[in-house]
Design a protein around this nucleic acid. Structure first.
Lengths: 217, 217
DNA sequence: AGTTGTGAATCTGTTCACAGCC
DNA sequence: GGCTGTGAACAGATTCACAACT
């Protein structure tokens, strides 16, 4: 009955992506239907949460039966915007950049790194894993030509601000930022920050205060 | 006045780590005091949030003045449990594993990768960036000897379950998991999942539904 | 004047619990 | 009998707003 009830909680969106993976796994196991209880169990969520999350986007379930896996997979893919290939620019070809360029998971999910940008003159003009490497000042030009809509920032922290600015100037609206620089942006930009040291620091906190461990960390 | 009010919100802990970095940056700029407003502005948080978060752990501020940077840095380091070196095991020496092994940020924050585990017989017995590589079945033994308390899982998804199980069996309580396998664990374990494809999928969602962009994504 | 620390108010997200359907 | 979808209750997190202090 319901459909769109105002902005969807970020947490819901993140779980959608988890559900999708769970469904793909269940499909591989040969299952045709799956219940919210099972989806929850496999991931440590409650079944009510799974149902509530899904109900934000439509009535996908069959009472007494659960969710038809194939149908739900394709619905979730649509909701998440995975029906198309996304072209991605990778900023920075250091350690992390190389790992990301070689990461199989991206392509499988429909994200294609089509251009790499690095200031190292030895790298510029060459290819890495078949992806051409350019000087960052070429970003706007290439992004326009190639229709790049997402950028991954994997430069050293010292270069982060400049690099993010270039991405914004090139009007690339989606940003996945691996540096520890946090830059508040205009609201039409979507930036997700992944800070590896922060993640370990959070773990360190909970190991140091085991009494404080609570819900899904 | 306050001190410990029951379990600290996960979100607060994650922000603590952001504050710490902000303080270190401000210190480098030669500042001695910083206000909650400034900490907030640099990161896109409200000042009230910054104050509330910090007030969970003590009264660090001076009214009319702000927070003394050096003092707060050392308090936060204590709270986060960064007063010691943490020894870390890296599971998996593929693309991502190599990048993580070479990541400078970890060591700077006090996390030392002291052992790598991989099933590739060509790698076992060698060193990567001066870190010895062992067969995963050696994990318990080495972890005990070296006093390893944190593990990073960077193996292929297909090996994830087994790898996480080994870590649990070795009684390593802190886990940073880069695979897309989510495994509910006993509550004394602290597992943080980082799923690169999920992050991009979340971005994809918000780019596809620009009307739904909300608060700090 | 400027800024903290915090109770109270608000807002957001989660869980409960059950009617309705298969 | 089993499971969804959802309003209502609850829990948690954020923001407001102001007294207290420098």
């Amino acid at each position: 009955m319901a459909e769109y009830h105002g902005p969807t909680p970020v947490a819901t969106v993140e779980r959608l992506s988890v559900y999708l993976r769970t469904l793909q796994e269940a499909k591989k196991e040969g299952k045709e239907f799956i219940s919210s209880i099972q989806i929850g169990n496999r991931n440590g969520f409650t079944s009510a949460q799974v149902r509530k999350d899904l109900s934000c986007f439509g009535n996908f379930g069959r009472k007494g039966k659960g969710y038809h896996i194939d149908t739900l997979i394709s619905s979730l893919r649509n909701i998440l915007g995975l029906g198309k290939k996304w072209k991605v620019a990778l900023m920075g070809l250091g350690n992390l950049g190389e790992a990301l360029a070689g990461h199989k998971g991206f392509q499988k999910s429909g994200f294609d790194i089509v251009a790499i940008f690095d200031i190292d003159t030895e790298k510029i003009g060459t290819k890495y894993k078949d992806i051409p490497v350019y000087h960052p000042e070429k970003l706007s030009e290439i992004a326009g030509k190639e229709n790049i809509e997402i950028a991954i920032i994997a430069v050293p922290n010292s270069a982060a601000k400049k690099s993010i600015q270039r991405v914004v100037d090139a009007n690339i609206k989606g940003i996945l930022n691996f540096t520890n620089v946090r830059l508040p942006l205009e609201k039409e930009f979507v930036m997700k920050n992944i800070n590896l040291a922060s993640e370990l620091e959070t773990i360190s906190y909970y190991l140091t205060h085991p009494d404080r461990i609570c819900r899904g960390v």
